[in-house]
Nucleic acid binder design. Structure first.
Lengths: 172, 172
DNA sequence: TGAAAACATTTTAGGCTTAAAACAATTCGG
DNA sequence: CCGAATTGTTTTAAGCCTAAAATGTTTTCA
């Protein structure tokens, strides 16, 4: 392949964007690294939750959402916050109700809606787990300076916004 | 609670580390943001793979690993690279062999080992999907400048190293 | 050499997850 | 007011995923 082919294509182009097969290897590598980091940390947290508290990560995540909502949440709210499917939440909640961690009742004003809350037991257990969980996270990120943390926060916010925009573009 | 309690605790401490309940809220927020970004992008890629190619993300990921290894890989290699359990790979490979995308054979020199490769069909289909996949990723990260990308790469590398160190600490 | 350790994979049991279809209740527009 | 669209949840079918135990193979080393 001649080294000038890209330039030739560019000369061919008219007013619109160039159709040269562009190189997006950098973005691809970034995505893989992002995924690796997340998978690594998630796996570590999952293992520690299991070992220390015999609880699964999805259960912990669901309880974390409810801990921030003393008045409860609807299943839809939970589903959106956790970014998982509705059906997923149904099953997760069912098991947590069975184990006595959640209370679930039908809304008085809208009989479609199920409102779930942490029970006293659920809240107590979550708080206990959350305290230790926070130290694990701190340890996993221990080598980052406060400046690194701030900078990562900023860049990830930008990344999130970019991805949301792209997702919206596709849906429209 | 008096505002000086932290200092009092520090005075109480002896040679070892202070037991003051430290504030790790920043790291926690960082972790949640990292998770959100990854979940968002992963969900988007999953949906597009399904819509355009009727393929699942785990299948795509496995084929991506094999595409980089013309001489094939063992199941253990795949399991380590993908950071998933051995049993997971067994099932994934089984389905991909059934659909004609993978070839699997027992190693001649070590009968414990299964070596898998992409078939001609598997490689062709993967290349077709990968080309489009790359444009999706580029679009999802479109609002990041080259500098942002470099900086994120650097900080995520640091994060990965930190997490690996922490994981190793726990295992020892 | 031969038992024990290490290794590669599979199996098992249970839970997680999704997309799509089904169902139920509410809201909207004519 | 009533049919149609919308909203909230559950169900279904299939696949993904893990940890732990089981199976078969190779290596180690006493």
């Amino acid at each position: 392949m001649p080294a000038v082919s890209g330039c030739i294509n560019m000369l061919d182009s008219e007013t619109k964007a160039v159709e040269t097969p562009e190189d997006h290897a950098e973005e691809l590598r970034l995505w893989l690294r992002l995924l690796t980091c997340t998978t690594l940390i998630e796996g570590e947290v999952r293992g520690r939750l299991r070992q220390r508290f015999d609880v699964t990560l999805p259960r912990f995540d669901l309880m974390a959402q409810l801990d921030k909502a003393p008045d409860g949440m609807t299943l839809s709210d939970v589903s959106k916050r956790m970014m998982v499917s509705n059906g997923n939440v149904t099953g997760l909640v069912e098991r947590l109700v069975d184990s006595g961690h959640l209370d679930r009742r039908t809304s008085e004003t809208d009989r479609r809606v199920q409102v779930i809350r942490l029970t006293k037991l659920g809240r107590a257990e979550f708080r206990r787990m959350a305290a230790e969980h926070e130290t694990w996270i701190a340890d996993l990120f221990a080598d980052l300076t406060p400046k690194d943390v701030r900078e990562l926060m900023r860049l990830l916010a930008k990344t999130k916004a970019s991805a949301q925009k792209s997702a919206a573009r596709r849906r429209s």
